[in-house]
Simulated scan of single mutants.
Amino acid sequence: MAALAWLLIPLFAVVGAAIWGGWAARNRTTGDVAELAGYARFRDAMEKAASGNTTAE
């Protein structure tokens, strides 16, 4: 029985590593579209603010 336990430990480690590897390699690009649109709006607002702040020095 002890030999079976020692054989199951590496098996559980391999299964855990496979699950972790699949989770780490998942596709996480779903939220990029909204973030890029928000950044574009921010950049446009900053350009408008910079062009409206022309004061004579």
Score class of each variant (00 low, 15 high):
Met1His: 15
Ala2His: 01
Ala2Lys: 03
Ala2Glu: 04
Ala3Pro: 11
Ala3Thr: 10
Leu4Lys: 05
Leu4Thr: 11
Ala5Pro: 02
Ala5Ile: 07
Leu8Trp: 00
Leu8Asp: 00
Ile9Leu: 15
Pro10Tyr: 05
Phe12Asp: 06
Phe12Lys: 05
Phe12Pro: 09
Phe12Gly: 09
Ala13Lys: 07
Val14Lys: 05
Val15Asn: 02
Gly16Asp: 08
Ala17His: 01
Ile19Asp: 07
Ile19Val: 15
Ile19Lys: 12
Trp20Thr: 00
Trp20Ala: 01
Gly21Thr: 14
Ala24Lys: 13
Ala24Thr: 08
Ala25Ser: 02
Arg26Gly: 08
Asn27Cys: 02
Asn27Ser: 06
Thr29Pro: 00
Thr29Cys: 00
Gly31Phe: 01
Asp32Glu: 13
Asp32Arg: 07
Val33Cys: 02
Val33Ser: 02
Ala34Asp: 12
Ala34Gln: 09
Ala34Val: 13
Glu35Asn: 11
Glu35Trp: 05
Glu35His: 08
Leu36Arg: 08
Leu36Gln: 06
Ala37Phe: 08
Gly38Met: 13
Gly38Cys: 10
Gly38Phe: 10
Gly38Glu: 12
Gly38Ser: 15
Ala40Lys: 07
Ala40Met: 03
Ala40Gly: 06
Arg41Ala: 13
Arg41Ile: 07
Phe42Arg: 09
Phe42Glu: 03
Arg43His: 02
Ala45Cys: 10
Ala45Val: 06
Ala45Phe: 06
Met46Gln: 10
Met46Trp: 03
Glu47Leu: 15
Glu47Met: 15
Ala49Leu: 05
Ala49Val: 04
Ala50Gly: 13
Ala50Trp: 09
Ser51Lys: 13
Ser51Glu: 15
Gly52Leu: 11
Gly52Gln: 11
Gly52Asp: 12
Gly52Val: 07
Thr54Phe: 04
Thr55Gln: 12
Thr55Leu: 13
Ala56Leu: 14
Ala56Gln: 09
Ala56Asn: 10
Glu57Cys: 11
